[in-house]
Nucleic acid binder design. Structure first.
Length: 218
DNA sequence: CACCAGGCAAGTA
DNA sequence: TACTTGCATGGT
């Protein structure tokens, strides 16, 4: 399995090149983006983040000072803006109540502790928590998303009832625990899914196609 | 027009 | 436990 995953990574990287996810941004911006991108196109998220940035609101203190309804209007382009405003405020509430709005105090904790802390927030599930761990806190945590399930299933490496943590362990148990590798691998999986898994007619162009016959698409 | 995007929680049986 | 539904904008 280790060889298979390394081969998969090599093929995707050779085909697409580096994806540069979340380069040169602040930790807070990554965290806000992780919440806003839940089931949402990243381009829409960028517009919402720009709204906050332009007004200088992208700091724990300024976000803390906003009301949920004010925040909701600012992040409208990201969709689900009412629920996402609450989710962001839930996270800021935790940051204020337990860490004095000091983001580094939150992020400097041991990985398992930090993961539990993030998951305790209403609105932060496995994928959002792990995205924050990997892309903001730079921990060697593999992020699993809908495309990861789809692609590995498509190529016969899992079945439809493989759950989030089984799939996560598949990667983390068989690859070197390098944050930079997990970062790039996850981004490449998303890119592949977008590019080649939307239509069956594009499957023959997928860089993983050479692996040979796979179970039929469901 | 339909479909979906870098999910999650709450409700139902 | 295992489904189902609501949340919402913007691009194809």
């Amino acid at each position: 399995m280790a060889q298979r995953l390394e081969d998969m990574f090599t093929r995707l990287l050779n085909h697409f090149g580096p994806q540069h996810w979340w380069p040169g941004e602040t930790e807070l911006e990554v965290i806000v983006g992780a919440v806003l991108t839940q089931n949402t196109n990243w381009k829409n998220v960028e517009k919402a983040i720009l709204n906050l940035k332009e007004r200088g609101l992208l700091s724990p203190d300024r976000l803390n000072a906003l009301s949920v309804s004010e925040l909701a209007q600012l992040i409208r382009p990201a969709g689900y803006y009412n629920i996402k405003a609450k989710r962001l405020k839930n996270l800021i509430d935790l940051l204020r109540e337990r860490y004095g709005l000091d983001l580094s105090r939150l992020l400097d904790q041991k990985t398992d502790t930090l993961r539990q802390e993030l998951l305790s927030v209403n609105g932060i599930g496995f994928e959002t928590a792990d995205s924050i761990l990997l892309y903001a806190a730079r921990r060697p945590v593999f992020v699993v998303d809908a495309y990861t399930h789809r692609i590995l299933r498509r190529h016969g490496m899992t079945d439809e009832q493989t759950d989030y943590h089984e799939l996560q362990s598949l990667f983390m148990d068989h690859l070197p625990e390098e944050p930079s590798l997990f970062n790039e691998f996850h981004a490449l999986i998303v890119r592949t899914g977008k590019e080649y898994c939307r239509r069956k007619s594009l499957c023959h162009l997928c860089p993983l196609q050479e692996w040979g016959p796979v179970p039929p698409l469901v």
